[in-house]
Design a binder for these strands. Sequence first.
RNA 1: UGGGGCGUAGCCAAGCGGUAAGGCAACGGGUUUUGGUCCCGUCAUUCGAGGGUUCGAAUCCUUCCGCCCCAGCCA
Length: 566
Amino acid sequence: MLNTGPSNFIQEIISQDLLKGKHKTVVTRFPPEPNGYLHIGHAKSICLNFGLAEKFGGRCHLRFDDTNPRKEDPEFVRSIIEDVRWLGYDWGEHLYYASDYFSRFYNFALQLIEQGRAYVCSLNPEEIRRFRGTLTEPGKNSLYRERGIEENLELFEGMKRGLFQEGQHVLRAKIDMASPNINMRDPVIYRIMKEDHHRTGDTWCIYPTYDYAHCLSDSLENITHSLCSLEFEDHRPLYDWFLEQLNVECHPRQIEFARLNLNYTVMSKRKLSMLVQKNHVQGWDDPRMPTLSGLRRRGYTPRSIRKFCDLIGVAKSENIVDMSLLEYCIREDLNKIAPRVMGVLNPLKVVITNYPPEHSEALEAVNNPEDESMGTRLVPFSRELFIEREDFREDPPKKYFRLAPGREVRLRYAYFITCEKVIKDEKTGEILEVHCSYDPQTRGGSAPDGRKVKGTLHWVSSRHARKAAVRIYDRLFLRPNPAQDEKKGLDFSEALNPESLKEMRDCQVEPGLEKAGIGDRFQFERLGYFCLDPESEPGRPVFNRIVSLKDTWAKIEKKMQSESGS
RNA sequence: UGGGGCGUAGCCAAGCGGUAAGGCAACGGGUUUUGGUCCCGUCAUUCGAGGGUUCGAAUCCUUCCGCCCCAGCCA
């Protein structure tokens, strides 16, 4: 076994099973239903299942749990395959569909009927519900529970042949209507559904339910450890029951773990799809979505997501992980690999009054101080520049060490400049431009006399700059746990953050960015990490902000404001 | 008031009878041509609460409390 990554209780169980010789190898599976897009909660399961298989030198299957044609769609199959691959996992030959086993499931059902362990029930859905009892009262036996084997066989055959209407009959396991575990009260295992299936077409008009199909799929694939989320804990006795009754050779062990929740977002397919349908976001791959396609478009790397899944751990307690951990993971990854570049989001014009008007020069800038092998580039400098509007204050607060009247700062990789004059709109008072002088001795950014400046600003030469649009994303929800709102009877979408997307259209970026390709990631110095969005067009780049850099100044300023305000 | 789970710091999470790992966040300091990175330091006398066993308990026993899941022909 590879000795990498943190351990968890599931890994320990597997180690024990291997040690005891219960298995020679480990076989896990990731079993999505193709009824929606994958999100970062699925990533936890994917990393767990594939990761465990990898650690123990076993294998992990990708299996589509497609037993309900009403909800499923090949488009989701496509996207799921894409997303799992993108995350970095490979199932080799082991791509399966529960629907491939439909005939075998059917034969197993025949076997159950013959054993007297399954029967065709002709109660209607409402009656079935009533007969089931409640959490505190036992259920009552169905009127059809004691039907003869021959009759059951005949009716089930009829169900399969389409002789009946939907809802007219179901096949049920005959277990115990008085069980304290409601799942054991004669669960439905086949229902009539006159629906075309994305893979089997109109071959079937009866479809197996999850509880029945899942354990058998696992068994047929020789899965050793079947990992699922906590809400299936109550289903485990059923999982085991089917496999025992049918006396299969392979009886996988189901182990449950807690699904992932992230604060300030939602993590259920239903809620995510509602956001899409109600146009709160622009699609499943909207960069604000916690879907894998959304994170990918936002600019998250697969490695950062895998790292995140490593850090959150695997346990059985309900959890809501802090978004800041995800942000930490992407910053850590991008810090090492993203080329640095300069871009000004909210431009303010600076004129270097003592710099020759027609002149320009190329200054050398480091591409990544964390990785010397990424080399350097030349950035053009001239008399008129753009700096960030936020980097100038006419009346600077304490601890502000950027540009202000009379102040000297460094332009990164360029010169020291001193602010001499502020040009304002007479009517509005808006600052139009700032006039500065530069010290030619400080070319490159350091002074021969050894004098220091406190601030270093990013900049872009106005003559050489390229225009760009930048999309700034914030958390989707205002409240940390929107899913909870719904349980309190509120509409979870009520807590949506109206400012989750802000588009800045007049950004100016250094000319080298012209060559950026869709999906390329950069650090805009002092601002954050950005990724070129697919909606970019030649000459009209659109950058998504993946995540900001940590901003100590913002923190200080906020603190000062709250201190003076209170 | 049935059954199944879970409770260790603001958020995750180790811990498996020998005296509370680690990460994120937060806070303080150092380095720095990114207020970034990096480095150093601080952050649980206590593990939901009480009682018991023990030389010794987050770990064992017991009572209580809180939270989550289950009454789809969804998964």
